[in-house]
């Protein structure tokens, strides 16, 4: 599967057109996403916001390639690769090379050290343990956990665990980072610290970051906010110096 590098800022990382997704059959069928159109740009931090059950996580899963769409849906392209036309094997390989994941519950393996946890994406790619752990140590240094490399996740605070998760998402230098409620399990102070660090290490002109969040305290880190409601994108707001976040989005949850 040839990858198309997105060199220029604001090149499209993901392009979704007329995406529909339903769960269930017959009378219990529930349409969760309705004709979604969305562009996620390289160099931006894009946030998907909206009330619970509005379809944010489902949309995130589709962009991440972990969930399919309804038959007859439009297109889901990530770095010009049509996810809907990929075989399961191609999709798996694409995820392993192009996408970094940060989960709400961190999902660090408790019996592995921080270094081992961070090296997982490289091991999945088939890299040697030696190479993977060397690179993992470099990234852990970048996120300020150089002195915690041999610790296990249970020996770390919530904020430190999320920093390990950030390191894991970055270690294989993916071009799209998918974050699911990255600050939901953290207190306000740690949430802010983690986002500041994340912005520092993850923002890059070649890379897109897509965050699903309820946490309006971190909206200030966004370049773009897409608000969802009832399975639709109801508003997309580009945040710039001259176009700050409007009040109704500032308090959106």
């Amino acid at each position: 599967m040839p990858d198309t590098p997105a060199k220029t800022p604001h090149a499209l990382a993901a392009r979704l057109r007329n995406v529909n997704k339903s769960f269930g059959d017959g009378g219990s069928r529930l349409q969760v996403l309705k004709s979604i159109d969305l562009d996620v740009r390289c160099g931006d931090i894009t946030m998907l916001v909206g009330p619970s059950g509005c379809g944010k996580t489902t949309l995130l899963s589709i962009i991440a390639g972990t969930l399919g769409v309804d038959p007859g849906s439009g297109e889901v392209k990530v770095f010009d690769q049509d996810l809907l036309k990929m075989s399961s094997r191609q999709n798996t390989k694409f995820r392993s090379t192009s996408i970094g994941f940060i989960f709400q519950a961190f999902n660090l393996i408790p019996t592995l050290t921080c270094t081992e946890n961070v090296s997982v994406p490289l091991l999945i790619q088939g890299k040697s343990t030696r190479h993977a752990e060397k690179r993992a140590r470099e990234v852990l240094d970048q996120v300020g956990l150089g002195d915690r490399m041999k610790h296990r996740p249970t020996q770390l605070s919530g904020g430190q665990q999320q920093r390990v998760a950030i390191a894991r998402a970055l270690v294989h230098e993916p071009r799209l980072i998918i974050c699911d409620e990255p600050t939901a399990a953290l207190d306000a102070k740690n949430g802010t610290l983690v986002m500041e660090l994340f912005e520092k290490v993850a923002r890059s002109p070649d890379r897109a970051v897509l965050i699903v969040t309820h946490d309006n305290r971190i909206f200030s880190h966004a370049d773009r906010i897409a608000a969802m409601d009832d399975g639709k994108i109801v508003e997309v707001h580009d945040v710039t110096g001259t176009n700050p976040l409007p009040e109704h989005l500032r308090h959106h949850e």
């Binding site: 972990t66 995820r95 994941f101 999902n107 994406p121």
Partner: peptide, 15 residues
């Protein structure tokens, strides 16, 4: 017990 970790590995591209 490890299902969420296995799920995470699968999402990250483990076949």
């Amino acid at each position: 017990e490890h299902m969420k970790h296995l799920g995470a590995l699968k999402a990250m591209g483990a076949s």
